[in-house]
Simulated scan of single mutants.
Amino acid sequence: MAFTDEQFADAANHWDLETLYTDLASVKGKRLTPVEKLHLRGLLCGYSPAEIAEKLQKNHKGVETDLCSTIYRYVKNLLDKCNEKIENWRNISEWLADAGYKTQTRSSTKLPFLDRLPENSVVNITNITCENNQITIDACLKITVPLPSEISIEKLDIEDNNNN
């Protein structure tokens, strides 16, 4: 079976793959192989090693062995986690997300409170973490509201610091 960049292509929508490939290649000492890139993209798409093997019509033990000897080792070296044990294949994407390789994506999911904000408001999600069965969303919120027509700038008691 030929391996292509189209397989597990959704990873490119959520991850900075080029930077990640480059950084992992620097740890490895040479470029990642097409199979290493493919396995990494599979993990970043949320597939287990067994699911990656199934989609690629490969032996799941072989994929697991390949991941342990390549991608897992490269990521641990890159992120200075050589002494940490990989408890679960999900650790790889969690560690890489924490290290900043996950890109900010625009979600089509509507958050109910956003409908109550004024029209010109801007919400930038800066970080999302999941720990202890809780989701924490860090955001910067910019709300622009017009002054009521009966209030003018002249009536506001604002000091002009430039005239001091």
Rank of each mutant, 00 (worst) to 15 (best):
W95L: 02
A97F: 11
N83G: 14
D80Y: 08
L78E: 04
E64R: 05
Q104R: 09
T65N: 11
I92R: 00
K81A: 06
G100Y: 08
K58A: 14
Y74H: 03
D98I: 04
L79T: 02
T105H: 15
W89S: 04
H60N: 10
N91G: 09
E87R: 10
V63P: 02
Y74N: 02
I71A: 04
S93A: 12
A97P: 05
I71K: 00
W95D: 01
D98E: 15
E64D: 12
V75G: 02
R90F: 15
N91D: 08
R73V: 11
D98L: 07
K58G: 11
E64I: 04
S69L: 12
E54F: 11
S69N: 14
D80M: 12
D80S: 11
W95E: 00
K76D: 05
C82P: 15
N59L: 09
E84C: 14
I71P: 03
S69W: 11
L96P: 03
S93C: 07
W89E: 02
R106V: 13
G62E: 08
N77F: 09
D98M: 10
K102L: 10
T105R: 06
G100H: 05
T103G: 12
Y74E: 00
D98K: 12
L79M: 04
N91A: 13
I86N: 00
K61Q: 09
V75K: 00
Y74F: 07
K76W: 04
Y74A: 02
N59D: 09
E64S: 15
H60S: 12
N88A: 13
T70Y: 06
V75W: 00
I86F: 04
D80G: 14
Y72D: 02
N77I: 11
L67G: 01
K102I: 08
L79W: 01
S69Y: 11
E94Y: 13
D98V: 07
K55G: 11
N83D: 14
E54D: 09
V63G: 01
Y72R: 01
W95C: 04
E64A: 13
V75D: 00
T103D: 15
L79N: 03
S93M: 06
K102D: 14
D80A: 10
A97H: 06
D98F: 12
W95S: 02
L79R: 01
K61C: 10
L96W: 02
L78D: 06
G100M: 03
Q104K: 14
I71G: 05
C82F: 11
D80R: 08
N59S: 10
R106A: 14
K58Y: 11
Y101E: 01
K85F: 14
E54N: 07
V75I: 03
G62N: 05
Y101F: 05
N77K: 13
L67Q: 00
G62Y: 10
N88H: 09
N59M: 07
